[in-house]
């Protein structure tokens, strides 16, 4: 069970790929932020995310998901799914941030003014 040189090489390659993927897209773009809610691959809601006290609430009864937006943040409040990953993701604040509820097929993401060219790969 001795560690071999190839093992270290694999770890280095995986770390390198991770860092590359983190650095590549232009996250945290400035300018106006747009919140997008996608349900079943269809855009459900798109609005400018502004820093106001006014609270927007989206109650999606069909998949059983509640999403709130306030103070320039958007987040999953609750979900009917088992893993609760979407709720645990917490509040999205920056362009490029994304929260996904796989079981309910609901996506919440924030787009920046210049991030339109980032999301073209998996169409």
């Amino acid at each position: 069970m001795r560690i071999r040189i190839g093992d270290i090489l694999i770890v280095l390659v995986v770390v390198a790929v991770s860092v590359l993927l983190l650095v590549l897209p232009s996250r945290g773009a400035t300018g106006t932020l747009t919140a997008v809610i996608i349900v079943d691959n269809v855009e459900y809601e798109r609005f400018e995310l502004v820093a106001t006290d006014e609270q927007l609430e989206f109650d999606l009864h069909e998949p059983g998901v509640v999403i709130k937006a306030q103070d320039g943040q958007i987040w999953f409040v609750s979900s009917s799914c088992a893993d609760q990953t979407c709720v645990n993701t917490g509040r999205l604040t920056r362009a490029g941030d994304i929260a996904v509820c796989l079981p309910n097929r609901v996506i919440v993401k924030i787009e920046g003014t210049n991030t339109s060219d980032v999301d073209v790969v998996a169409e």
């Binding site: 993927l21 996250r27 691959n41 941030d97 994304i98 996904v100 996506i107 999301d119 998996a122």
Partner: peptide, 8 residues
Amino acid sequence: LGENLIYT
């Protein structure tokens, strides 16, 4: 999902 999740 028709959404690029690779970077995130």
